[in-house]
Amino acid sequence: MNPGAARGSEPETLIQLTGVSKIYGTGQAAMHALRGVDLTVTKGEFVAVMGPSGSGKSTCMNIIGCLDTPTRGSYRFNDIEVGALSRDQRAILRRRCLGFVFQGFNLLNRTSALENVELPLIYRGVPMGQRSRQAAAALAAVGLSGWENHTPGELSGGQQQRVAIARAIVTTPDVLLADEPTGNLDSERSLEVMRLLTDFNQREGLTIVMVTHEPDMAAFASRQIHFKDGAIEAIRTG
């Protein structure tokens, strides 16, 4: 959380998973979703997480997103041991440092784009006037100036996902976690969204971790991590 250091010469570690395992259930019925995953993401990286369903990539994302905690091993976010945090402490960590983009957009119905983007600022306690200015700026950054008062029902899928991206970046998070952000979009809109994300990554230095099963989309990332059977199978760069 030292913005000046992000562009320093030494790449700074943001996310560090060491021997992370996640086991659901106990005894014979125990299900090993993750088996000793080691993964490091440095600031400013754009990482794609790939793999078939059931490979553990979603579980890994949930842990990185502080929605879940590892059964074994250590997850350090910005040198904070997330496994040691309480539910509410993790909520505060998400509120301060993380931005989420979902496959299904997850915008509030019958609520204007501006108010949707304001939502995380409300939880941060940002005063009303500043809130709408920040939200309007974020909407402008995703190319949706003039759409502030439209509700999700009045927007196309691509536009809705851009509103969701605006909602994720309005708090200037340390990392943007995108869970199949193009999964519900056609290829043209998908490219639009991917260009937007790449743009944020390259111009703002925004760290992005994205789950996808489309190689075309993964190609936008600087690193692709392939999961299989709860472990990292391969890491490709470029």
């Binding site: 929605l67 909520a91 509120r95 993380l98 989420f100 979902f102 939502l119 941060r124």
Partner: peptide, 8 residues
């Protein structure tokens, strides 16, 4: 969604 965004 609210919880992911940071609602306690």
């Amino acid at each position: 969604t609210r919880m992911a965004i940071g609602a306690m």
